[in-house]
Write a protein that binds this DNA or RNA. Structure first.
Lengths: 185, 185
DNA sequence: AAACATACGGAACGGTGTTCCGGATGCCAA
DNA sequence: TTGGCATCCGGAACACCGTTCCGTATGTTT
């Protein structure tokens, strides 16, 4: 038991994390494995040992931000004048996060096996938060009550795709329209 | 002049079109070039000669359906009880088209150079139709007047991504919510 | 039938992700 | 300190992918 990890292994993992973060900023989350390896001064095998799938690497890089977003849900609910306002603000947080990570929104709903874990992680962590905000708003009659967190998160994620690609497309605005469409009739 | 095309060239082009259509149904619009070539009993060079980019091939395969969708716009506008209803129906047409083509929605907003033409073709053909429906609805005060066709088409295309992937995500429903969000406040 | 223009096939190239294993390296016990 | 072992590393190698290119084959015209 307690098979403590070798020091160089842990060191490489941290180096890799930093290199990946830098590469993601420079070339998006699709940055070639070899490029990340080179940036870290490491062989490609080392990447796969620490992060078997690309999803593992992406999750590791953005975990803190996702966590922060998840935790902001209850906070906003408590601090906002209404659940509907809180929902709007929280969604904005999520959109801002996605929009500033090149290719992340695209990767999130890719059907490639390597991205399944990524999809699962984001959903597991954020859907419950979204659902609770939705429920609170629905309980007050502010929005329709037949919308579930999964579907809304999925849709918002999709709307963020191509956000940086065309200057004529404003993902934030379209998400707002979507949220507006949630209002009870 | 009148350098008439060789008979075998035209024959191959048609064979290729049929093979591509079949391959798209079987494996989505990302079907490997070699797979399409094999299906047509042709070398890969022949594909590139007739369809320099993948977008050219996709456009050729779906041109008729896109055209039909575009032409349905004015028809629906004339036949519906209100512009807003016509808009909803027309968008549904577009969504049905996209959702039944594996990977097409994804390809539509890919930033890869090969797909630029695809993006451009769809937009050139459908945005004006969408814009006229939007304008008609806005003129009657049914919807907000600050929405343009491009942005709406872009957003609807995005919402169609992953439509077949998860049974829990219903693209048609989310598009309806988006359209509902367009209503004038 | 000959000669020419055109189109074809598929090998070859550069770039991906992913696997695999001989060799180097940290770690611990003696 | 040193020996030996488990762990970890590097990068070559493989399997795909899109794309290009040119010797060869095939239509077309004279």
């Amino acid at each position: 038991m307690t098979p403590r990890k070798r020091a160089d292994a842990e060191r490489n993992k941290q180096t890799l994390l930093a290199a990946a973060a830098a590469a993601f900023v420079a070339s998006g989350v699709d940055a070639p494995v070899r490029a990340i390896a080179a940036r870290a001064g490491v062989g490609v095998g080392t990447i796969y040992r620490h992060f078997p799938t690309r999803a593992d690497l992406i999750v590791a890089v953005y975990q803190h931000q996702v966590e922060a977003c998840a935790e902001a849900g209850p906070t906003l609910l408590a601090a906002s004048s209404s659940p509907h306002v809180a929902l709007g603000r929280w969604i904005n947080l999520f959109v801002d996060f996605l929009v500033t990570k090149h290719g992340l929104a695209e990767a999130l709903q890719s059907d490639e096996a390597a991205f399944q874990k990524l999809h699962a992680y984001f959903l597991d962590r954020l859907v419950p938060v979204c659902a609770s905000l939705l429920e609170a708003a629905a309980a007050k009659g502010e929005i329709r009550d037949d919308m579930d967190g999964f579907e809304l998160m999925f849709a918002v994620g999709n709307l963020c795709i191509g956000a940086g690609a065309s200057p004529r497309y404003d993902a934030r605005r379209m998400v707002e329209v979507l949220i507006a469409g949630l209002r009870a009739r």
